[in-house]
């Protein structure tokens, strides 16, 4: 029961953890300085403490009533994440245009059912679009193809 309640509070717990990370980091590695000459650690510590305090308040308040949250749609999340990651992986070895194609291909799995023709059209369109906009149109110094 408590575990389920805590699962509902994952977002708040995440913020609490981030706040603690910054407070602990500031306290252990950064100089807080004096009120007159505040060091690099002072401001992150203050902001972190405020976040930690507010996260605790939110936690106490929300634990009393069941909090509503939206369950994650892992298919869309995964496809979009893989798409962005593929772009970053393909670009250094093959150039921007193959990366754009790979990115569009992976991202197309985020949108649900799609016929093969449409998927092919999407990938071709993405490559052509990137070529037209970024390389022909804006003349950005990007490497279109690499290692061919």
């Amino acid at each position: 029961m408590l575990l389920k309640r805590l699962k509902e509070q994952f977002g708040t717990l995440l913020l609490l953890a981030i706040g603690l990370f910054f407070v602990i980091g500031a306290l252990s590695f950064l100089d807080p300085g004096t009120p007159r000459r505040m060091g690099p650690g002072a401001f992150p510590m203050i902001a972190g403490l405020v976040l930690v305090a507010l996260a605790c308040i939110a936690l106490v308040r929300d634990l009393r009533q069941a909090a509503d949250y939206t369950p994650a749609d892992w298919r869309s999340v995964g496809a979009v994440a893989v798409a962005v990651a593929l772009f970053a992986i393909v670009t250094p070895s093959f150039g921007v245009l193959p990366a754009a194609g790979a990115c569009a291909f992976a991202a197309s799995f985020a949108v649900g059912r799609l016929s093969h023709q449409r998927r092919a059209a999407l990938v071709a369109g993405a490559i052509a679009g990137v070529w037209l906009i970024f390389i022909v149109g804006l003349k950005l110094p990007l490497e279109a193809f690499k290692g061919f």
């Binding site: 962005v84 990651a85 772009f87 970053a88 670009t91 250094p92 990115c103 991202a107 369109g125 110094p141």
Partner: peptide, 29 residues
């Protein structure tokens, strides 16, 4: 189904083109 994949491609390449740094793309993710 055309719009969102196109958006993903556009923002990836857009962020990359600012500094030509793939670290930015990973951070964005």
């Amino acid at each position: 189904y055309f719009l969102y994949p196109a958006v993903v491609v556009l923002i990836s390449i857009g962020v990359y083109s600012i500094d030509h740094n793939l670290f930015d793309v990973w951070t964005m993710l």
